[in-house]
């Protein structure tokens, strides 16, 4: 249990998707003009991460890893290593699940769907989603609980970052910025400063 809490806190603050790994930068910059839409996209990202990361974990453990197919084919399968297929399978799972999530949300909570609407399909090609699955594979988490905590934490960290920059950009309209720096330029520099602030969480550990 301790390790789960630890992984969660670590993926929100220290291994933050935006500030430490720059994942999902494209939508981070494109959709951060107002806090409202930024929040909507953040929620959608959490939602999709929470589903895709555990599913890809199961896929990795039971299909892709070296010797993972022994439960299906018996002893002779120990030599089979399909890990070179992980990119293509992960992206297929992500594309399919995004599609599925979109349909489910549309059917059961039309209000949420109207808010997220345009963002959901965009998420399939958001690098934060694919990146989380690849990090999950690289870091060898012990069980599905840890993986779920990692997915949820990464999503929450991403939400935190995008809502933060959106709030700053709303205020930025009234400041006197050098002309060539307006828009993207200043957003990058502010993100950099936010990242420095987040570096102070380094070494934070529970349990």
């Amino acid at each position: 249990m301790e390790s789960i809490v630890n992984i969660f806190v670590k993926s929100v603050f220290i291994d933050n998707m935006i500030f430490a790994y720059f994942l999902g930068m494209c939508s981070y910059l494109a959709v951060s003009k107002t806090v409202r839409t930024a929040f909507g996209l953040g929620i959608a990202v959490i939602f999709v991460l929470l589903v895709t990361v555990p599913v890809n974990y199961l896929l990795d453990v039971y299909v892709l890893r070296a010797g993972a197919l022994t439960w299906l084919l018996g002893e002779e399968a120990t030599a089979i290593d399909l890990s070179f297929l992980s990119f293509i399978l992960f992206i297929a799972v992500i594309a399919a699940i995004t599609q599925l999530v979109e349909m489910v949300v549309e059917k059961f909570t039309p209000a949420l769907y109207n808010q997220l609407g345009i963002f959901l399909p965009l998420i399939a090609v958001n690098c934060a989603i694919m990146g989380a699955s690849l990090f999950m594979q690289q870091r060898n988490y012990a069980n599905i609980g840890e993986v779920t905590a990692f997915g949820l934490g990464s999503g929450l960290g991403w939400l935190l970052a995008i809502v933060g920059i959106a709030a700053i950009r709303e205020k930025l309209k009234y400041s006197d910025i050098p002309k060539p720096l307006k828009g993207v330029g200043i957003s990058f520099i502010i993100t950099g400063l936010m990242a420095i602030a987040f570096m102070s969480f380094q070494g934070l550990s529970l349990g």
Binding site: F19, F22, P180, L181, V184, G192, I196, M199
Partner: peptide, 17 residues
């Protein structure tokens, strides 16, 4: 990581001016 963000901001600044 943070300096990468600030540096790209500066590159954009120079390029746009």
């Amino acid at each position: 990581p943070p300096m990468a963000l600030i540096l790209v901001g500066i590159v954009i600044w120079v390029h746009r001016s």
